[in-house]
Design a protein around this nucleic acid. Structure first.
Lengths: 106, 106
DNA sequence: TGCGATATATAGATTATTGATATATACTGA
DNA sequence: TCAGTATATATCAATAATCTATATATCGCA
């Protein structure tokens, strides 16, 4: 199957309550999806960089246990984008389910 | 948003009741999704060829109004794959919604 | 007679993701 | 104490799904 394109929505949602660093976001997604969604570093970090370049999130570094961590937080534009992405997501799911529930064709 | 990966599932479903030619499948998907899903020739035909190579569907040509049309029909393996893809789809939707409905994080 | 819909097909570009690799620290178990 | 695993970030090459453009050909309509 391999459905792609949900990561930005998920990241924006996870950040909507409080700032998190990348690794934590990925763990949250994995945990809350019961292990079904498992985004790796190679996907996660480039996506975070893109969202930051788009002005939807912003980052700051913070030392923790002697290590630098990059925290991300939602910007106002990101909050708006999250609402929009949620609507797009439910629209897409509705559209596919509508076809699958239909008696299959003509 | 740009969610990718649903086309094979949708094609298998549309073919599950009776054979169709490619253009018809795309129109069905577009119509039944209220115009939200709109797969073009450049996506549709390569995907049909792939599904055929995988042995999930088979095709035959039929003359209609003086024009050759390529009809596709589900094979037994395709019927099994459809069930499997449906489960994967609902699992994926459940996983994403579980995260979105969660209070957002830790 | 020319345009839009029908119908199939392929090539090139773009986007999302995976896997591999790199680097570095912390914790845990043998 | 040493190895393996988890934490943490980052980049690159490869793959997969899709889009755009292009090609070709027929049909019906204005």
């Amino acid at each position: 199957m391999n459905i792609k394109g949900s990561l930005p929505l998920l990241i924006l949602h996870v950040l909507s309550s409080q700032p998190h660093h990348g690794y934590e976001i990925a763990k949250q997604i994995n945990l809350q999806s019961g292990g079904l969604l498992d985004f790796r570093g190679g996907t996660l970090y480039p996506t975070l960089h893109t969202l930051e370049q788009e002005g939807l999130i912003e980052s700051y570094t913070q030392e923790e246990n002697g290590r630098l961590r990059r925290y991300y937080q939602l910007r106002e534009a990101g909050r708006t984008a999250l609402l929009h992405e949620r609507e797009e997501w439910s629209g897409f799911v509705r559209a596919v389910n509508q076809i699958l529930e239909g008696g299959a064709s003509i």
